[in-house]
Structure formats: C-alpha cells, structure tokens
Design a protein around this nucleic acid. Sequence first.
DNA 1: CCCACGACCTGCTGGC
DNA 2: TGCCAGCAGGTCGTGG
Length: 275
Amino acid sequence: MPELPEVETVRVGIEPVLLGGVLSDVVINRFDLRGGIPEDFAERVKGAVITRTERRGKYIFIVFDNGQLAVLHLGMSGRIRIYKADEDYVPEKHDHVVLRMQGGARVVFNDPRRFGMLYLVAVDEIDNVAPFALMGPEPLGNGFSGAVLHERLAGKRGPIKSALLDQRVVAGLGNIYVCEALYRVRVSPFRVAGQVSAAECDDLARAIRDVLNAALASGGSSLKDYRQADGELGYFQHSFDVYGREGEACKNCKAPIERSVQSGRSTFYCTQCQV
DNA sequence: CCCACGACCTGCTGGC
DNA sequence: TGCCAGCAGGTCGTGG
C-alpha cells in the first residue's frame, strides 16, 4: 500500500487518537510479521503515555513517555482502522494488533501479507539503528535538494529508477512516485543514476516534492481498497500520469506507455518523452 | 562496495 | 464454475 504520502496520511489519522493518551491494552493476535513482533511488546508499553508520533520515510514512530518508541511499517498491504471510544470493534481477517486507549478508542493494524513490521526501540537510539542510521533525507524536508540528490547518486552505476527506490538515497519513495517523478522530468528510468546531471537532479528533486505534495493533498493513493485511517479513500490514483497505464496513450505525446521490469519491480514510462 | 534476484505472504484478476 | 499464472504500494539476505 504505502509510500510516503499514504504513510503520512495514516500518521495524521492516528495521531489525534493516540496523542496524550494512555495505552491501556495491547492485543496481539499473531507475532509473525516481518522480523516478528517482540514477545514483550505489550508489557513494555502498556500503561505508558504517548507523547508524540513521527514519520521517517515509510515508517511511523509512536513515542511513549517511558523512553520506548514503537516502529510501525505497513509493508505492502498494511492498513489501519480507527474505532472511536463509542464504537464497537468489529474484527476482520488479518487484524494482527489492536491498540486500546484509556477511554476506549482503538487503533487496529491489519496486514494480509504480513510484510509489515512492529517493534520497539529506545527513543534515544532510533537514529543509530538500522535502517534509520543509513536512511536518506526526507524529500519534503530542508535536507533535500537537487544538489543533495546529485551527490547521493554520484558513482552509482545502476539505473536511476532503482536508485530512487533505495531508501538510503532518499527516504519514502516507492514504485508509484518514482515512476511518476521520472515521467514528469522526462528522464528515462534506465539512465545510469550517477550520470544524471546536476541540472536534471534539480528538476527531479522538485518533481519528487511536487508529486508527493500533490498526493498528500489528495489523501494518498488508493490502490485496491487502501483507505486512510478514518476510512476515507485517498484519490491520487486518479492523477497518475504513467503508473499502471501500460498501453494507454502518453498524456504528452500519445505514444503508448510501456511497462518493463527493473530489479523485480514494474516500471511504467514513455519511450518517446523520457530520454 | 555495488547491484540483481529471490524470498517472504495473501489475495485478486484474467485467461482458459 | 474451477484452476492456474501473474501481479501487487516493500524490505532484506544472498550471491555474483
């Protein structure tokens, strides 16, 4: 499901439910997500107050007043449902974790494929542990620019498409928004990453920010039936220029959009416009 | 070190 | 209707 805009939309959705509240109960229906939920997860955070939430790349952080930080990743198929204090919990298949707040509100983590992750890190260690120690800059933050991108791509021999998916280059991009950003700046996904010019990196950095901001403004993209935490559908999928449009006419030149596979992932692009 | 690839899972779609 | 192949928003470990 989730790249940066979808993850941020989820974070914004759960924050008002969690912030300042006491986590009164944790129900874990299965521990075998990617990497495994630690056996002592519940006992380490039960009764603690949530002091803030953050997002780093595609990860959501939930920070507790006892020094623990919960790391949540939605994988490919993870979803969050919220139940307000006066709503009854209706279990669904693949509800793996239910966080219950004092007062009765619930945050439910559902993930059919179980590629998601949930674990705890000491809050003052988070920047030193994998994958955060090596993670690239936030594309919507001050630490990201064309110059920064150009520098981080230097020497890379693989294709620009694959490099932009590497979270150590820039955080939060995934298959959709990489395809969209490259199309916007008319750069071929097959170009050698280290040979993308400084000027092109300026354009690319701007396009990345633009497409992420546009997606955020739409509540993210809803493939399948991904929903925001409040149950609303994001609608940026209607604004895709190339992603998922194999065979359709390029919006710029009318040539058919092509699909090919790079490092195991589908790439959608225009052979005429993107050079 | 860099990069491509398979593995990890379930569910849905389209073709026969 | 059933069955099977192929595909899906991500990450990590392996091996060349």
